[in-house]
């Protein structure tokens, strides 16, 4: 009972905050609603016994990425968005595509099947703590994909530096 109340609260707030974030005319207010949404996502993770992921969610998204968003907004000195009648000319097409995606999501939700249970059940996680579990799985079982992902990020960093350095020459 109490679980359902918590879950309903978190998911309702996440949906409400996402809607608020994209409808605000003041860009900074939108960013703040997004920040609240990230907090509720972190709460949802905590609710799933994933304490490590929830802390990382706050550190990375709320602490770093949203601060960068704020930084960009402040550097560009965006105050209020211009009110325009129609932003995109082909909105019926967009409506069609998005309702199609919604249909796909609904259909997949109706036919969802839970996967088979692995080694890492709740009892096991509570025994070794979630941080240890994530570390063990990430560095033992999925070491190669992890390294590939970090290589991809390195390429992105080098690309950013190359783009930024071109002007200096």
């Amino acid at each position: 009972m109490i679980n359902q109340i918590f879950f309903f609260y978190f998911s309702a707030v996440i949906v409400a905050m996402s809607v608020m974030a994209i409808t605000r005319r003041q860009v900074l207010h939108g960013v703040l609603y997004m920040l609240l949404m990230f907090f509720h996502i972190a709460g949802l993770y905590l609710f799933l016994n994933a304490e490590f992921i929830s802390a990382v969610q706050i550190i990375v998204y709320a602490g770093a990425i949203m601060v960068l968003f704020l930084f960009v907004i402040m550097l560009l000195n965006l105050r209020e968005d211009i009110r325009k009648k129609q932003f995109i000319a082909v909105w019926p097409m967009g409506l069609l595509v998005s309702s199609g995606i919604l249909m796909v999501v609904l259909m997949s939700m109706l036919t969802v099947r839970t996967g088979t249970k692995g080694v890492w059940g709740i009892a096991q996680i509570e025994r070794v703590t979630e941080t240890v579990a994530v570390g063990t799985v990430l560095y033992m079982q999925y070491l190669f994909p992890f390294e590939v992902a970090s290589l991809v990020l390195l390429v992105a960093i080098i690309g950013a530096i190359v783009l930024a350095k071109r002007k200096v020459k």
């Binding site: 490590f52 802390a55 706050i58 550190i59 770093a64 601060v67």
Partner: peptide
């Protein structure tokens, strides 16, 4: 980690 999260906020 909680301390990091709060200090970044």
């Amino acid at each position: 980690l909680f301390l990091f999260a709060m200090s970044s906020l």
